Simulated scan of single mutants.
Amino acid sequence: MAISDLNLPLGMLARSLSDAQQLAETLAADVAAVLRSAIDSQGVATLVVSGGRSPVAFFESLAQQQLPWSRVVISLADERWVPVNHATSNESLVRRHLLRGPAAEARFIGLYQVAGSLEQAALKTDQVLSELPPIDVLVLGMGDDGHTASLFPGSPNLCEALEPEGSRRCLPMQAPSEPRQRLSMTLSLLASARLPLLAIQGSAKLATLAEALSLDDPARMPIRAFLHSPLEIYWCP
């Protein structure tokens, strides 16, 4: 299957890149261009990224882009509820691979909060995210089960998290993998991004995407809630 074989909704764009490095470099250059335009027009630009292993090359390429980084605000679509020095922390990943060199001047808004419970942490994060400027660029990933951010199929709060007009910015989520306890931006906040992008690699992810496109219920594969214009897809084999 090629990405051109997908039955994409009207207006939704997809790009096929030759390999992971070209995907990372192309995505970084395109994101930087949108951030520059936002800074030129409004003085500040906001970028929300996803964690995990896949975005590392993108982060490192983006960190090399020429930008007025002090005018960029960066946050995360989701986070594991672990201390920021934990090996699986998304914040730690961003700090190691993106917020370095000139890019270290960007303002970072993290999701992790110390609290007595995951729900209390989510409420604290919800308040922190009230300071997040409007999102100019959102970069999502996708799991083989069709989850994106930490919006996992079967998570107890998923229906609330997928409410298009929901009032919460962040909700506690339960992942099937370790560490299970997660914090995730909700659909209502993520969908407010002016330019949402999805970066995926490999034939398995392409098959997952095709399955998600065939569904009506985003609770089965939450990425389905984002599969409409103006989403742009970046894919490589």
Rank of each mutant, 00 (worst) to 15 (best):
L76K: 15
E60G: 01
A2H: 14
V94W: 06
L198M: 10
L111R: 00
H86G: 06
L93P: 02
F226V: 01
S61R: 08
M221A: 14
G101F: 11
V128R: 11
T208V: 15
S229Q: 13
N157L: 02
G43Q: 06
L213H: 07
S188I: 02
A191V: 00
V73W: 14
V139K: 05
R220W: 00
P134R: 03
M173Q: 14
T186D: 04
S89M: 11
P196D: 13
A122E: 01
A210L: 00
S177V: 15
N7H: 08
Q120C: 04
E178T: 14
R182H: 01
F59K: 04
L6I: 03
E165M: 03
I39P: 03
A193I: 10
G166T: 08
T46H: 02
R95M: 09
Q113F: 02
S130M: 07
E165F: 03
A28M: 09
D30Q: 14
D78E: 08
A45P: 09
M12W: 03
L129H: 08
V82I: 06
Q174P: 00
S117P: 04
A204E: 15
C159L: 11
S192T: 13
S4A: 15
I200D: 09
L209Q: 06
G202Y: 04
I200L: 14
Q113Y: 01
Q42W: 00
R220H: 03
S117D: 04
L99F: 09
L138H: 05
D216N: 14
D5I: 01
I200H: 09
Q201C: 07
S229P: 01
L123Y: 03
L197R: 14
F59P: 11
E131L: 09
L158A: 10
S92R: 15
L162V: 10
G116M: 00
A199Q: 09
L171M: 01
N7G: 12
P230F: 12
S92W: 01
L162Y: 08
H86L: 11
P68K: 09
P102C: 03
A204D: 15
S4M: 05
T88H: 10
Q65T: 02
D126F: 00
A225M: 07
N90S: 10
S155T: 05
L35P: 01
A77Q: 04
L13W: 00
V56D: 05
R194S: 13
P218I: 07
D216V: 13
L10Y: 05
G43S: 10
